[in-house]
Computed example of a mutant assay.
Amino acid sequence: MKKYIIVSTYPEYGSKNIGDQLITSALIDVIKFTKGANVEIDIVWREDSWENIKERVFNADAVVFACLAIRPNMSVKEYPFLKNLLKENIPLAVVSAGTSIPVSCVKKSVLNYVSNETKEQLLSLDRNAIFFTTRGYLTQFFCESIGLSNVVFSGDVAFFNQRYKDVSFVEGKKINKIVISDPHHSKLYLRSFNALVLALRAKYNDAEIVVALHGNDAAIKEYVNRSGLKYIEVFKDKDKGLSIYDSADLHVGYRVHAHVSSLKRGVYSYLLEQDGRGCDYGLTINRKISVPSYCQPRGLLEKFMGKFGFNRYAVGVSPVDQIISLVSQDEVLGFHKFLGLEKQLATFSDDIINSIKKLP
C-alpha cells in the first residue's frame, strides 16, 4: 500500500480557515481518485517541528505540499522543517503553490518578495521535486522570475471535486439567495464590508442574504450580530461547512475559496481581491469577475495602533461600488459571461490529475 504525507496549511488551532481545509480535502480526493482509494494518507501541519514529523516522513512514499504557501521567510515560520526535508532523499511534490505578494506596494518588485534563503530553498525544491505546480498566474510569474525552471501552472487543486465535474453555468438565473464571504483583516475592512452588505441589501431586497464566516474572527462576528445579519460559522464544520454554496445563486465577497467553492458549483461569483492571493485568482480566471480592494502596507507601529482601533489604513468603499456595478450590468446581460467558464476550471483538475499520476 502506498503511503503519502500531505503538508497541510489548515490552522486547526488558530483561525480555522475553512479554505485551507478545502485545499487539504481536495488533495486527498484527487490522490485517491488517481492512485486508488486504498492509499494511506497522513496529514502534517506545515508549522510542525522536524522532530515531530520525521519518523512519519521517512516511512512515506512521498511528501506532498498542499498549496505550498510561498512567503518571505518560509523556513522561519511557515515551514520550519523545510530545510530538513531538502537534506534528505525523500520524494517531494508541490501542488498548486501560491503567494501573497504585496501587490499594493509600489516600491517593491515581486522579484524581491522572498529572502535569499527562501529563494535558495525554492530553487532546491524545484530541482528535486517530482513535480511543482502553481495555482495562479502571478505565482507562476514569480517562480519563473527567480529562476525556477521545472515549475508549471496547474490552477488550484481546490477546484477538484468529482461531484461537480458535470456542472455547467446557466444563463439568466434569478438571484434568490446571496452568500457574502467575510474579509481577512476585518478591522481594516469593516467599512468596506458594511458598504457591501448595504449595497446588496438595497439591490436585492427580496433575496435571502447570508454571511459565511470562513474563519474564527471575533470582530466580524460582532459586526454581523450587531447588524442583525443572518450568518453561518462555516469554519465550525470543516468538512461540510462549504456546502452553504450548494444553495446559493450569487456569491460576492472576499475569500478566494468562497470564490472557488461557488464557481465549481456553477454559482455566479465575484471576488474583492484583498491581497496577492486574490490578485492571483483575478489574473487567472478567464472572466472579469473580481476587483482589487487592497489595503496599503503598514509598518509595525501602524499594526500595533490598529489593535486599538486606530486604523488610518482602513480600506475605502470604492471597490465595493465597482463590484456592484459589475454585478448589476452582468445581471442585465443574464450573467452571460459565465457561460463556458466551467471548461477552464475543468482543465485545472485535469492538469493536477496528470501531476498526481507521477507520484511513486
Rank of each mutant, 00 (worst) to 15 (best):
K238V: 00
Y254H: 14
V76A: 13
K307S: 00
L359D: 10
R226M: 13
A314Y: 07
E47A: 13
Q274I: 02
T34Q: 05
R135F: 07
P102F: 04
E51Y: 15
Y4F: 15
T9H: 04
V315S: 05
F81G: 03
S269M: 03
R163L: 02
G19M: 09
L333D: 12
N225Y: 05
T133E: 03
I18E: 08
V315D: 12
N225F: 04
I101G: 04
R265L: 00
Q274W: 06
F235C: 11
N59M: 10
V327I: 15
F159H: 07
G316C: 08
K238M: 01
Y113T: 10
G276N: 08
L22H: 03
V315L: 07
E51T: 08
T34V: 13
K83S: 14
Q162F: 00
E342D: 13
K303L: 15
V315E: 10
N161S: 05
K3A: 04
K87W: 00
Y270G: 12
N73S: 14
P292W: 01
S15V: 06
V39H: 05
V44A: 11
Y4S: 09
V110A: 02
K357H: 09
L190S: 12
S115C: 04
K177W: 12
E47M: 13
V76T: 13
D237M: 02
I178R: 11
K177F: 04
W45E: 11
G155V: 00
S247L: 12
K187H: 08
Y270R: 07
R56W: 02
H185M: 10
T347L: 14
I6L: 15
H336N: 14
L27C: 10
K108W: 04
K2T: 06
Y231R: 14
N205S: 15
V234D: 03
V179P: 07
I31C: 03
V327C: 08
A66K: 09
K35F: 01
Y245N: 04
S109I: 10
N89S: 14
L341Y: 09
I31P: 02
